[in-house]
Design a protein around this nucleic acid. Structure first.
Lengths: 250, 250
DNA sequence: CGACTGTTTGAACCGGGTCAAGTTTGGTGG
DNA sequence: CCACCAAACTTGACCCGGTTCAAACAGTCG
């Protein structure tokens, strides 16, 4: 199956970091133009994933890290017995698979929540290139360090926050991530199911649903299926940070 | 204040990786003897910390990562309002401070739980050295990756496990860490207070205390103050993994 | 257009938090 | 070495947020 040369070129073009709209957020963000060419040479394009398809499965041998080009994914770790744990959602420009380096196997499956395109970065090549390019190395350290910090925040959420605070925090985090990517922080579409949100936040589906209904009824946001519209950002921030009595007493 | 030459030498000796009993677990574990010398040259010895003293405080500028030589520490992140979150305990050979790389400030205070000695590794030197020594670089990536995996496990614990399962898991994790360091996995001393355990596991102090009492009464372990003696390891593993009805029905 | 999956809502229950009151431990100074 | 005090720990009683169970409803995709 072959394409006309022009289309083939445009596909390749699309896979080049220099022309990628995410380059200011993505791994090579710290690179000079000339270095970016080197980086470009090691990344591989992947066929788009359809909704529900895995990028890789738990236990697969670790070979590459990935960045999301478009779409979104979830990471799920299964513990043998029925209950899985959803440990992460990935949006465009975010790095996937860093937690597989250590044991040389991916510790969870990563599954597309919608049609999703991906850049594959073979880790051995990345490591070698990071030897030559201190900027790239630094960026890689920073990416992992940021993920560690985010994890700590998540632990705090899971161990200290009420269901309302969890939902509010989750929505604010999404909002902020959309904002940084140039989308509206007020109005966006949830690509994940309520069950996924519940699993991620340590809540029952029913609780997620109930609280979303309540937020809507309190005019903090409008929710219609997976479409979210934040109406009162300040209130949402208050809901995420403060304890119950502080919020209710206004 | 000066010491006889022989003692001075022995102090320096003590600070050398080649003679450190932890070298098989610590950051330079992958290095050849000759490379270890280079690594040795960049690490700095620190005066021992007394119980309650901070290694660094939340918000301090990130300069170094640290490894524990002896003793133990806790990492605490404060969110302005009263409630702090204890996000980690550190035992000998474990790397402290990796989550500060990204924002160039430490995201939490790290405080000694007992008299604790530390090796300081200035990060800029470590980064430069990691350029020359692929083994060291790999070990650094692996350390961070392992911490990511551990965090995911902690998230699962916090979002899915009951109080009993949390305590059991916590004790097993400690047990395993002691075992790997050459100490008894059955009998050890908790260097942290019940309140610290509760904070870390997302439980009230009272709950921690109650459950430890119950474990003891069920002859799973003997607890006397901070001394722990695991009597029935299999049972403890079952308590950590299985759901309540499975365990109670035996 | 039917079947299935995802979502919402209601009612009842319970695990673990909170509050309160001892009890033990460890550190300090006499 | 002991007495004292504050901090750490234990235990009990009660209560509440969030889970579970149940059932109806809404999308969505063959």
């Amino acid at each position: 199956m072959s394409l006309p040369a022009s289309q083939r070129r445009s596909l390749l073009q699309e896979a080049r970091c220099q022309t990628c709209s995410l380059s200011s957020l993505c791994l090579p963000l710290a690179l000079e133009l000339e270095d970016m060419g080197q980086f470009d040479a090691i990344i591989r394009r992947r066929a788009p994933l359809k909704k529900g398809e895995p990028l890789f499965r738990q236990g697969d041998r670790f070979t590459s890290v990935y960045t999301v080009r478009s779409g979104s994914l979830k990471q799920v770790t299964s513990e043998g017995n029925g209950n899985d744990q959803l440990t992460n959602f990935f949006l465009p420009s975010e790095l996937v698979g860093l937690d597989g380096i250590d044991e040389e196997h991916y510790p969870g499956s990563v599954i597309a929540l919608e049609t999703t395109t991906i850049c594959e970065i073979p880790f051995d090549r990345l490591d070698m290139l990071s030897e030559e390019l201190p900027e790239l190395r630094g960026q890689l350290y920073r990416s992992m360090s940021k993920e560690l910090r985010d994890d700590r925040r998540m632990m705090r959420l899971l161990s200290r926050k009420t269901a309302d605070q969890r939902l509010a925090s989750f929505l604010l985090t999404l909002s902020e991530r959309f904002r940084r990517r140039g989308y509206s922080p007020y109005s966006f579409r949830l690509s994940m199911a309520r069950a996924d949100i519940g699993n991620y936040l340590g809540l029952a589906v029913e609780t997620v649903s109930r609280i979303l209904s309540r937020f809507q009824q309190q005019k903090v946001m409008a929710v219609s299926g997976r479409e979210v519209n934040i109406l009162d950002m300040q209130r949402l921030i208050a809901l995420a940070e403060e304890d119950a009595q502080t919020v209710s007493s206004r």
